[in-house]
């Protein structure tokens, strides 16, 4: 089948998609966007988290055909979406690098999409809110402490820049 989908603001088309393929497979293997990760393909780890019409989903649990005609944002689109200049990072991406929230990095794309969604909904989340929002994303390297730091840092920086400071 043919799937038309808008990914990171660009209309994309894939042909000869097998009906059993996931959105994750479509992104990674057919559209050349391997940033969304395949850590479990069981909907448990969150490393494939993308936004489908704005809602965070596990791309491994969405059939490719279900994404037809819809809007997808992946980790590859976060910087542009945040209005970052070419070659620059979004605030949440930069905060993950600066806070030491990245080790092996395999969970990072999914966490970034989830954190981006959280900060869009709640620019000043409490620690408990951050934990709840990220509870569907497994990380095996960091123990999450630096990830919490990163989300706090991104929130603080965004608040500062919003105030024009």
């Amino acid at each position: 089948m043919r799937v038309n989908v808008t990914v990171n603001g660009r209309p994309r088309q894939a042909d000869d998609v097998w009906e059993g393929e996931s959105l994750l497979y479509l992104l990674r293997e057919r559209l050349g966007l391997p940033g969304s990760k395949n850590a479990c393909e069981q909907g448990e780890c969150g490393s494939c988290t993308v936004r489908l019409d704005g809602v965070p989903v596990c791309a491994c649990l969405v059939a490719a055909g279900q994404a037809h005609g819809r809007d997808v944002v992946t980790v590859e689109g976060l910087a542009a979406r945040a209005g970052a200049a070419e070659g620059h990072l979004s605030p949440v991406q930069q905060a993950f690098v600066d806070a030491g929230a990245v080790q092996c990095g395999f969970c990072t794309p999914g966490l970034l999409v989830a954190a981006d969604d959280l900060l869009e909904r709640d620019p000043d989340p409490s620690d408990a809110d951050i934990r709840e929002a990220l509870s569907g994303n497994l990380c095996r390297c960091t123990g999450y402490e630096k990830i919490l730091d990163a989300v706090r840092l991104a929130a603080a920086r965004t608040a500062r820049s919003g105030q024009g400071a």
Partner: peptide, 12 residues
């Protein structure tokens, strides 16, 4: 900071 941090947060 990690030299690979930038690539890891952009999905590259």
């Amino acid at each position: 900071l990690r030299p690979d941090g930038g690539l890891k947060v952009t999905g590259e």
